[in-house]
Design a protein around this nucleic acid. Structure first.
Length: 758
DNA sequence: TGTTAACCGATTTTT
DNA sequence: TCGGTTAACA
């Protein structure tokens, strides 16, 4: 994953490889006719419209293998680009498998990783050194926060996050500060953002740093300003493959188009119906315009679906047909049978969670593994109620998404130490840890360092190094800062000789950082110590500090889920590219899905993107899709009533089974479906929920006699999610616990540990 | 300089 | 309702 070719960019290690051999017939036989055409149409521009579940990845990897093994190009002449590290890894593995040799050093990777690789080689052309630091969003916002006052921008009205977002969007569109027109920035912070953008880019240069957007933007700038450099890359990449083309932003599009200009053998795979990231700069227009951009392009539609039952496909197709301006394609399958898509209306959100839990339990008892089921929600907040329900029911689950490993505070802190070792001029990293753990370096001493650095035009680290030689600082501060600098010098001196894990160990212990967390009595401190230990394991495989830092910067992903049998809870966005036997989709209500903000902010465009999101959700299901909506839901602590989602009406009735709880609001707003016991009742203009009492806990499965209750009343216990608490009552394998923070809950014993066992 | 109290805002997320 | 962030305080 880290960049691992230090060789000359145009040296071709595979050139002396043996004679090309044809891709084995076996691989081609496994493709259907259309797929095979997508693989074998190697020359000229090709757009593969790959519907959900139509074997897109297989086509991509087989195509790459085919180009290679038919002798059309050497590995170093093929560029294969993905969006996520996960997709890149998958492609590398499958290609390696196909061609029977490792693919290290090949140009297969994410846009950002590959762009970084190019940029490191020509960094000087945009005023950077090749060892520049890659900043993430958090660094970016800290930097902007520092710069706001100088531009006279009120950080209350224009929070760094918001301003950072604006800058990022500009970069997505390949607009440097010089290209942003006055009109564009005029409505933000009284038109002062453009000046801030300029200052920000200037500061990045000083820091020898690039943010994510810069990786692409700088490349495009280089390609446009240095035709000779561009020409070499154009010459080199005879074949270009792009995954998830509908998600590309303008900068990525330009990057690709420039590179493809010479040979024009570019194959983009994507699905306009699965474009769900416009809010982060993706331009569906890129895929819609492909034929115009690349005259003579061949368009191949992969429509045969190998994933879902006919009812699911028909429901999804019927829904997405309500969108305008599609390239158009119709999924089909030759499987038969299967269940209709089920739509179920319930009174309130706890009942919705309960209905999901009940069905999971039924399926599980019938033999379906929990890992074959997923709940896909529109917003992250929806998982809370589900989690509470699943915990009381004793159904193991995992929430995908949320804070990632490298985003954790303690990991970022330690990485900051490593960054200062690798690049002493990294002021952001230096500031982060200069007084962490507390070394008595307060505002006053640091201001002195800042002033000195600015006066001398040097970095904070160097300024600190010089200042400790003088007596300008308070003796205590001087001593502390001197000790820190001495540590860094020692670590840096050793960093090339010792193993990375050992270096990390020395940093953790020598800095006092690990000790700080060990002594911390906070509830989560032990977990942080644990994470730091994990980091020492994670760092091991890397050869150099630089390679590790590149990995940290570009591979922000969560570790892959464990093998445990658990149901998956995630957002619809997070589910793209995945599949499950059974998919539950709660919260199909107006305002939540489609989300009100999407409607308010981007109107019809927003609505269509929400509809695509629904389409993505439905097409994740192999066997069974269950959609739910609740008449009442607690939003920000307040009970609110809602109408069923308009998407429900758009699902073709003959493929859907509707079950609406009696006495709800009848079938107002939704078609009377087949077989549902719903009774039409006038829908009250305003439904105030009277939250129901006590019914949820009453129905119990009777368990075999398990009398080894280690948790008596009054025992102090710990729960993974709810924290510490005290047992109030015992009921078989369920405990009623008064949690210190989370209140009184009923929880299965299996989720509980004695408090002192930690 | 560190801790608490009030305050605000609250889709979606990768790199 | 909750959590993150800032302002006020000891």
């Amino acid at each position: 994953m880290a960049m691992n070719d230090s060789s000359d960019p145009f040296h071709d290690p595979m050139a002396s490889d043996g004679a090309p051999r044809a891709l084995s017939a076996r691989h081609l036989e496994r493709l259907n006719e259309t797929q095979r055409r997508a693989v074998e149409t190697t020359d000229g521009p090709v757009l593969v419209l790959a519907g959900a579940g139509t074997g897109k990845t297989r086509v991509l990897t087989t195509r790459l293998g085919h180009i290679l093994l038919s002798g059309k190009a050497h590995p170093q002449e093929i560029l294969a680009v993905t969006f996520t590290n996960k997709a890149a890894r998958e492609m590398k593995e499958r290609v390696a498998d196909l061609v029977g040799r490792p693919v290290e050093g090949w140009w297969i990777g994410t846009f950002h990783a590959l762009a970084a690789r190019v940029l490191r080689r020509h960094a000087d052309l945009v005023g950077l050194k090749s060892n520049f630091t890659i900043l993430d969003t958090d660094d970016q916002n800290r930097l902007i926060k520092e710069l706001l006052p100088a531009q006279g921008i009120d950080s209350q009205r224009w929070p760094p996050k918001v301003v950072g977002g604006v800058l990022q969007r500009w970069k997505d569109r390949a607009l440097g500060p010089e290209k942003v027109t006055g009109a564009e920035g005029s409505d933000i912070a009284e038109g002062r953002v453009v000046a801030l953008y300029r200052a920000y880019q200037e500061r990045l240069k000083q820091l020898n740093a690039a943010d994510f957007g810069d990786l692409l933007l700088h490349c495009v700038t280089i390609f446009q300003a240095a035709p000779d450099v561009l020409a070499r890359y154009q010459e080199r990449f005879r074949y270009i493959l792009v995954d998830e083309y509908q998600d590309t932003n303008v900068a990525q599009y330009l990057w690709l188009r420039l590179l493809a200009q010479k040979h024009k053998n570019i194959c983009c795979v994507g699905d306009d119906d699965q474009s769900i990231y416009s809010w982060r700069g993706a331009e569906v227009g890129n895929i819609l315009r492909f034929e115009k951009d690349f005259p003579g392009a061949v368009i191949i539609r992969l429509e045969r679906n190998y994933r879902s039952t006919p009812h699911i496909l028909a429901a999804a197709s019927g829904l997405i047909a309500h969108n305008q301006g599609r390239l158009g394609k119709t999924l089909w399958t030759d499987l038969d049978g299967g269940e209709k898509v089920r739509v179920r209306g319930v009174w309130d959100s706890p009942q919705e969670a309960r209905a999901i839990g009940d069905e999971m339990e039924t399926l599980h008892r019938r033999g379906d593994p929990l890992s074959s089921m997923a709940v896909l929600v529109r917003t992250g907040a929806q998982t809370r109620e589900l989690e509470e329900c699943l915990i009381t029911m004793g159904i193991a689950y995992r929430v995908v998404g949320g804070l990632r490993f490298y985003e954790r505070q303690e990991i970022r802190d330690v990485v900051a130490y490593l960054r200062v070792i690798a690049q002493p001029d990294d002021d952001l990293a230096f500031m982060r840890i200069v007084n962490l753990p507390k070394r008595g370096l307060g505002e006053a001493s640091l201001r002195d360092v800042h002033l000195y650095a600015r006066a001398q035009g040097i970095s904070l680290y160097r300024a600190a190094g010089r200042l400790v030689e003088t007596d300008e600082l308070r003796p205590a501060a001087r001593r502390a800062l001197g000790a820190l600098i001495a540590h860094f010098e020692a670590w840096r001196g050793r960093s090339a000789e010792i193993k990375l894990a050992e270096l990390l160990d020395q940093v953790l212990n020598g800095s006092g950082y690990l000790q700080m967390w060990r002594e911390d009595k906070a509830l989560d401190a032990p977990g942080r110590v644990e994470n730091l230990k994990e980091l020492t394991v994670g760092i091991e495989p890397f050869e150099t500090l630089e390679m590790f830092l590149e990995h940290v910067a570009l591979v922000m992903e969560n570790e892959t889920a464990s093998e445990d049998d658990k149901v998956t809870l995630m957002t619809l966005h997070g589910a793209k590219g995945l599949e499950f036997d059974t998919v539950f989709m709660p919260g199909w209500e107006e305002g939540l899905f489609p989300h009100q903000r999407a409607l308010d902010e981007t109107g019809t465009r927003g609505l269509e993107e929400e509809r695509r999101l629904a389409y993505v959700g439905l097409t994740r299901a192999r066997q069974r899709a269950v959609i739910l909506f609740a008449a009442n839901r607690r939003i920000f602590g307040q009970w609110k009533s809602a109408l069923p989602s308009r998407f429900l009406e758009e699902l073709p009735g003959e493929h859907v089974e509707r079950i609406v709880e009696t006495g709800l609001y009848g079938n107002a707003g939704i078609n009377a479906g087949s077989g549902g016991p719903g009774v039409p009742v006038a829908f009250p203009a305003r439904l105030r929920a009277a939250p129901r009492t006590g019914q949820e806990a009453s129905r119990r499965r009777t368990q075999g006699a398990d009398d080894d209750a280690p948790f008596g009343v009054g025992v102090r216990v710990f729960h993974q999610k709810f924290g510490y608490g005290r047992v109030r009552a015992v009921d078989g394998d369920k405990l009623e616990i008064a949690f210190d923070k989370a209140g009184v809950k009923k929880v299965m014993t299996s989720f509980i540990r004695p408090a002192d066992a930690l």
